Each structure stands twice: as C-alpha cells, then as structure tokens.
Simulated scan of single mutants.
Amino acid sequence: MDKILVIGAGGQLGQCLKVVAERRGITEIVFPAEQDANILNAAGLKDLLSKEQPVYVINCAAYTAVDKAEDEVDLAKAINETGAAHLAAACLASNSTLVHVSTDFVFKGNEVKLLKEDDQAEPINVYGLTKLDGEKAVASTLPAHFIIRTSWLYSEYANNFVKTMLKLGAERDELNIIADQVGTPTYAIDLANAIFDIIASSSNAYGIYHYSNEGVTSWFDFATAIFNISETAVKVNPIPGSAYPTKATRPAFSVMDKSKIKTTFNIDIPYWRDSLVECIKQINK
C-alpha cells in the first residue's frame, strides 16, 4: 500500500487506525507525535509532508468538545477550519491525497429522513459550523480529497459515550438518558477499516462520503444496549433533550445515507449493535 501519514495520531480514531494498520499488515504508515504534526503550524506541516512524502494523509485532528466549542469559538475554528486549510495546502504542495474526517453535525437534523452527501448542510452549533468550514477549506484548496462524515464515534480507546456509560453504570443504580435524539453510533475500528479500504482502492472518486455503522438508534437505546451487552445492572430512564439542557443544540435526527460509500468502494458496513458487542468484548479484555 502507498505511504500514509496520520495527523492527530494520539486521538481515538488515530489509535484505532494504528490497531487496524497492524491487523492488516500495513507497514508504510507514519504516526507522528503531536508536536511534530501540529495542525496549527502551517510551515511545520509542509516540512513534515515534504520530509515523509506520503501518498495519503489522514486527518483525525479535530476540536470535538461540542459544548465547550460554544465558548471556545476561536480555538474550535482554528483547529477545525484553519488547521484543515493548512493541511490541505501542505497536501497540495507535496502532491498527497487527503482523507479528512468530518461529522453529521454539519446538518440541522430537524426532519426524519436519511441524510445524503449533497443535502444542504446547516449546522446548529459552533462545532458543526467549524467542521463544515473545514470541509469547505479542504474542498476549495485541494482537489484530491475524500471528506468522510461520521457520527457518534466510540471505541475501546480515549473518552467516549460507551466508556462513560460503563463507568457510570458501575457507580450508579439509575441513569437518565436522552431518548429524542436519534442517529447511528460508529465503532471507530470500523471507520478505520473503511478509510483503509478507500486508500487501498486507489480510486480518484474524490468528494464527500457518509460513514457510520448500519441502523438507527437513540442515545437511550444505545445506553440500554451497552448495559445489556455488558450485563450491567442499572435502571435507564428515557428523558427528553429538553430535560437535560446543554450549551450546544444537537440535531434531533441525523441518520446518514451510506449508499454512496458502499457502492463506490464496495464497503460492507456492520450493524451498530454487532460492532458494539465487539467493542465491549475488547474493553473487557
């Protein structure tokens, strides 16, 4: 496989890419330390790419604290938009293809329908807006790009909803979980596999693609499944989002249509609950 460079290697998806690369026997891959791949340092990124000469760059670096972004607007914008622009420019200079990870939060999510790649993006929070601006920066700077929007990312690594629920479930008898926000969880190991499948295809079908696991669920049903699979005895109460106000507004329905990525790259996508079973198995190891 062509040489790959991963930006944001220390985060959840970066760690999953490392694991999957080992499983798939991908050796031509570089995971630079954060100080050597600072997305805010345009000159440093150009130097890094010119030294490593990757054919593909995967960008996992992002500001993802959705509620904090409402206060830290400048920082979210710097990482998600300016950083993405820096990286796209560095890829252009080194003739590299960029795989840039984005989010379902670019959508308003106010109607019950599968979201397609060309549906109008209308973010309702700062995080979504900065990620959309990052997509635009990538697309306008670098023709050779794959933008992959994903949703509700979790894994055995870093902090995420599954690990938080397992921790809270062990500490408490009862939990209130939002039942009127609907989407699809995505196992970051599955997303990592999909990214490598795209790279392995050597395709130049550039553009935006949607990837999450298959199926539809609410945060309440997701939490219930986590406790059922992990055999954690805790009472889960469904509550409306209005009963748990957050700084950032969330889309009520953000289930993405994945037919484009499936047909273009012949990717087989696991059902969300099957992947959740696998993740909990890994956590228990």
Rank of each mutant, 00 (worst) to 15 (best):
Q53E: 13
F196M: 05
Y63F: 14
A137C: 06
S218V: 10
V112W: 07
L17M: 08
P240A: 11
F222E: 06
F220N: 14
T97W: 03
K18D: 12
N266P: 01
I283Q: 07
G8F: 01
N204M: 13
A179C: 13
A225N: 11
L175F: 04
E135I: 06
A65Y: 02
Y157E: 05
F222V: 07
E81H: 00
A139E: 11
K46L: 14
S203E: 10
R24L: 15
K51N: 14
D221F: 13
F161L: 02
I226R: 01
V236T: 15
V255M: 08
D104K: 06
D190W: 03
N160T: 07
N95M: 07
K235M: 11
L40G: 03
F227K: 03
I29G: 05
Y206K: 01
I79F: 01
P185N: 02
I79E: 01
A93H: 12
I267Y: 12
R172S: 05
A69T: 00
N159E: 12
A144G: 06
K285Y: 01
F146Y: 14
E28N: 14
E28S: 15
A78G: 06
T103I: 06
Y56H: 08
I58R: 06
N176M: 04
K116T: 13
E72A: 05
P240Y: 09
P245S: 07
Y271H: 14
A200Q: 11
Q120E: 13
V138D: 02
V55T: 15
G44H: 00
A139N: 04
I208T: 12
Q53N: 14
R23L: 10
T150L: 08
R23V: 05
A233L: 13
D118R: 12
I269P: 09
S254C: 13
N160D: 13
L166V: 05
G14N: 04
V55C: 13
V138T: 02
N38Y: 02
I280A: 11
N125K: 08
G25L: 09
D274H: 11
T217H: 03
A90Q: 09
A61E: 02
L17V: 03
Q12I: 09
C16P: 00
L276S: 04
V277S: 08
C60R: 01
K258C: 15
I29N: 08
V234F: 08
A188C: 14
D104Y: 09
I189S: 02
E52A: 07
F31K: 10
Q12C: 09
K51H: 14
L13A: 05
D36V: 00
L92S: 13
T263M: 10
T141E: 04
E122I: 09
Y244T: 00
F196H: 00
E34M: 09
V138W: 02
A200D: 14
E52Q: 09
I198T: 02
D119N: 13
G44E: 02
D118L: 12
K131D: 04
V55P: 00
K3E: 07
E214D: 11
R250G: 01
K235I: 12
S212P: 08
N80L: 00
A188F: 07
K3T: 14
E34Y: 15
Y211G: 06
I261K: 09
D71F: 12
E174M: 15
R23N: 15
P32E: 09
N204I: 08
E171F: 04
D190G: 04
K108A: 15
D74Q: 01
N237S: 11
T232H: 12
Y157L: 06
A21R: 11
E171W: 02
M165F: 12
